[in-house]
Nucleic acid binder design. Structure first.
Lengths: 112, 112
DNA sequence: TATGATACATCAAATTAATATGTCTGTCAA
DNA sequence: TTGACAGACATATTAATTTGATGTATCATA
């Protein structure tokens, strides 16, 4: 129930977050959204629209695939699955994040 | 002489980096550019064009002011100065960055 | 049966960064 | 003295991504 920062601050890292949430299990779209909320103690929200853009991008480029679940009750769910290429991208993106963190710490750490 | 990541990874933090470089002294545009390069050991480059956009934005919104130096030799230089409002923005942005860092660590740290 | 929650989806607007250029001034070497 | 290079500022166009606003459909429940 707090501020909930803008995703613009993580811009460029959204895909990485999505991939991370799929590493150990397939998940459906709304589930990913909720996972992120929970995981950050409701402090950070990746908007649904932002996520759906990301899913599309990632699927288009072969980093994830999707399939419909066979729910007999409740709303239909579309599940996402990371591909090998997606895991590779995740590995690289995580390195990029670590580098980003280092750079920004250098730049802000001592207030230049 | 290394990879030099894309600024998209820091997108949203460019202004913060610029403000940081102005906290303790006024600097001219090209100087800020060089400071960032040096400060990151040439590993990270904020493109000139990106910086000039940032200067414009920041000045338009009252976070910095500018004035021409009185160089008698060499090319003219436009100096930038942080305003009180700019310092306040910096303070807030830095908090945002710290929060962002925490969130992303939570999200990637354990690979969900 | 109306409301709210779950779940998927798209579009238009707004931001911001990248690429590509362009101008001007001064230094220095051939 | 001329030409190349570096310092320094600047803009225009394009591309990528996030967000707000909407919209549809299903199910549980009061």
């Amino acid at each position: 129930m707090e501020p909930k920062l803008s995703s613009d601050l993580l811009r460029g890292h959204t895909d990485t977050v999505v991939l991370a949430s799929l590493l150990h299990q397939d998940r459906y779209g709304f589930e990913i959204y909720n996972t992120i909320l929970e995981r950050t103690g409701e402090q950070y929200e990746l908007k649904e629209a932002t996520l759906y853009s990301a899913y599309k991008r990632l699927e288009r480029d072969g980093f994830i695939t999707s399939y419909w679940g066979d729910e007999t009750r409740g709303a239909r769910r579309k599940y996402y699955h990371v591909t090998g290429k997606g895991r590779e991208l995740y590995r690289q993106n995580k390195l990029d994040w670590q580098f980003t963190r280092k750079i920004l710490n250098d730049l802000l750490g001592e207030d230049l």
